[in-house]
């Protein structure tokens, strides 16, 4: 799954082309069965869970819904979730740009290994992602005793949550930028430099405009994952209400206390975030495609 924006092309809609051609047109009943089965699967596995979140959230009325959202523990969970995303997204953005610059614009040995290692956090279970920071910063871990002596809390505190979030969202922006910048090559940048532009000018005026949609796409997906991460954060959080609870963890606590309506109310905010993410993602894909087709024309 290389960068989505990098693999976009101008031919966005091929369905009508296939349907117009007798050699690629399927019989109406094949079409009916394929769409019927596909859409049924889609409704049962995707649409129903989404609808269920909102149905359950409003089951006890709109007042219960809003009470669950303005309750102090919920507000503090929202704040912590925003903080974790506000720290992890920019850090991974800087990393993604730096990694893509090095990989796409220069030749060096071990490049493929580096690309594989950048993807590594995607294949690590979120629970293991949390565990590794326990082993480094936990009381039993490498730096545990030193941190305790200096009264610094990382595990069961906000820094641990931020670290775990950075880990699980690590590859998002880099993997969008690397394939796109590799396919663009370095001719434009070299032209700018030879015309007398400085390195920074070249970067801001040539490189960034060329990759802005891929960049935005990566940021959107990175942010969604940062705000929604559960497993990794759950391990390092300690679940202290009002202090180290993010929104997904708050959902879990409410759910386990049988406060279903409140749990689904907070969950509905996260579901809204997911919908906004998909909307923005489709907009960016559309814009990126538009830009590509303009360039081809």
């Amino acid at each position: 799954m290389a960068g989505a924006v990098a693999t976009l092309d101008a031919r966005a809609d091929t369905a009508s082309k296939f349907e117009a051609n007798p050699a690629t047109r399927d019989s109406p009943w094949v079409k009916f069965v394929v769409i019927g089965l596909g859409v049924t699967y889609f409704v049962i596995f995707l649409l129903l869970p989404l609808v269920a979140v909102f149905a359950e959230a409003f089951r006890k009325g709109i007042q219960t819904y809003f009470e669950a959202l303005i309750e102090p523990d919920a507000l503090s969970a929202i704040r912590l979730t925003l903080l974790a995303a506000a720290l992890s997204v920019p850090l991974n953005l800087v990393f993604g740009v730096a990694a893509a610059w090095a990989i796409a614009k220069f030749q060096f040995p071990g490049k493929n290994l580096l690309i594989t290692l950048i993807d590594l956090p995607f294949s690590v279970s979120p629970v293991v992602a949390g565990l590794i920071y326990m082993l480094v910063f936990g009381l039993q871990g490498w730096f545990g005793p030193w941190l305790r002596d200096h009264d610094i809390k990382i595990i069961f505190a906000v820094p641990g949550i931020v670290l775990a979030t950075i880990f699980v969202t690590f590859p998002f922006i880099a993997r969008e930028l690397i394939p796109l910048m590799q396919s663009q090559g370095k001719d434009e940048e070299e032209a700018a430099i030879s015309l007398g532009a400085s390195g920074l000018q070249t970067f801001w005026r040539v490189t960034i405009p060329n990759v802005k949609w891929a960049l935005l796409y990566g940021v959107i997906l990175c942010n969604a994952r940062a705000m929604g991460e559960f497993g990794a954060v759950s391990v390092v959080s300690g679940h202290i209400r009002g202090e180290t609870n993010t929104m997904p963890l708050h959902v879990e606590i409410l759910y386990n206390e049988y406060q279903f309506s409140a749990a689904f109310a907070v969950a509905s905010l996260l579901a809204l975030l997911a919908l906004v993410t998909l909307l923005l993602k489709n907009y960016v894909e559309w814009r990126a495609r538009h830009t590509v087709s303009e360039e081809i024309a």
Partner: peptide, 23 residues
């Protein structure tokens, strides 16, 4: 349908978990 296919990437797993359980 095409736009919502990516929902499992965007929907936090805990939300998916409680929604599926409710269904």
């Amino acid at each position: 349908v095409d736009a919502l296919i990516d929902l499992p990437f965007a929907l936090p797993t805990a939300v998916a978990g409680i929604a599926l359980t409710a269904i």
